[in-house]
């Protein structure tokens, strides 16, 4: 069941990028990025098990954000990509602020969810702090790498593959390893980070191939 849902979410994630490319314009991509940012941030509080591998649930939509950035670097200018990065970062920060205020408000006597909000957020405080930092670093790094790759002529696809593997590795190192190291312990965090890195690399490689195919599809709205 879990594997099917994971696959379904991955298809939806790349499918929406395809739909936005074919039928819509730049504004809708911003809209998509904002939704992915909020979803990825909320999902980062859950660790799921897929085929016996422990991964952070935000891995799909986090990859989605990176590929929207990849699309922007290739389709529009660098200024637009920087604006996208800023928008995504602001969204994550605003969401985290609202989630924190929600969890610290004094609940009513009949409230059932207060304890869940507190357990989810205050127990995972390192995630709230480290996720925006890792996302910012990953986006800046990805933006730079994608921009350099755009100019490359020879064996671009191979270089692109190595780049996304590197990005996946760095992102998991910063976010997953340090968050779980503080939350659980360093040894277990290393295991989760390795699992997460593996899944992220597979997702990123698939997304690279699909995004390159998406670029070849003719747009309806210019």
């Amino acid at each position: 069941m879990g594997e099917i849902v994971f696959l379904l979410l991955s298809i939806i994630c790349i499918g929406l990028i395809f739909v936005a490319h074919k039928y819509f314009g730049k504004e809708e991509f911003y809209f998509l990025a904002v939704i992915y940012a909020v979803v990825a941030f909320v999902m980062s509080f859950k660790t799921i098990q897929i085929l016996g591998v422990n991964v952070n649930a935000n891995v799909i939509f986090d990859t989605g954000i990176i590929f929207i950035l990849y699309y922007f670097v290739n389709r529009y200018n660098y200024k637009e990509s920087k604006k996208l990065m800023l928008t995504v970062l602001i969204c994550v920060l605003i969401t985290s602020m609202f989630l924190i205020t929600t969890s610290i408000m004094v609940p009513s006597l009949y409230d059932r969810f207060s304890i869940s909000y507190q357990n989810m957020l205050l127990d995972s405080l390192p995630i709230i702090i480290i996720y925006p930092i890792s996302l910012l670093i990953t986006m800046i790094l990805s933006g730079y790498c994608f921009r350099e790759l755009k100019e490359e002529k020879s064996s671009r696809f191979i270089k692109m593959l190595f780049t996304v593997i590197g990005i996946a590795f760095i992102e998991t190192c910063i976010f997953v390893y340090f968050s779980y190291a503080i939350l659980i312990d360093f040894r277990k965090a290393l295991l989760i980070a390795l699992d997460c890195c593996l899944v992220k690399i597979i997702l990123m490689v698939v997304f690279v191939m699909l995004t390159n195919k998406i670029f070849k599809v003719k747009k309806v709205k210019q």
Partner: peptide, 19 residues
């Protein structure tokens, strides 16, 4: 949708709260 995926044994408090 992520709520219906089975959770990992790590960080159990947060996983249960999410679900």
């Amino acid at each position: 949708l992520v709520g219906v995926i089975s959770y990992s044994e790590y960080n159990l408090v947060s996983n249960l709260a999410y679900d």
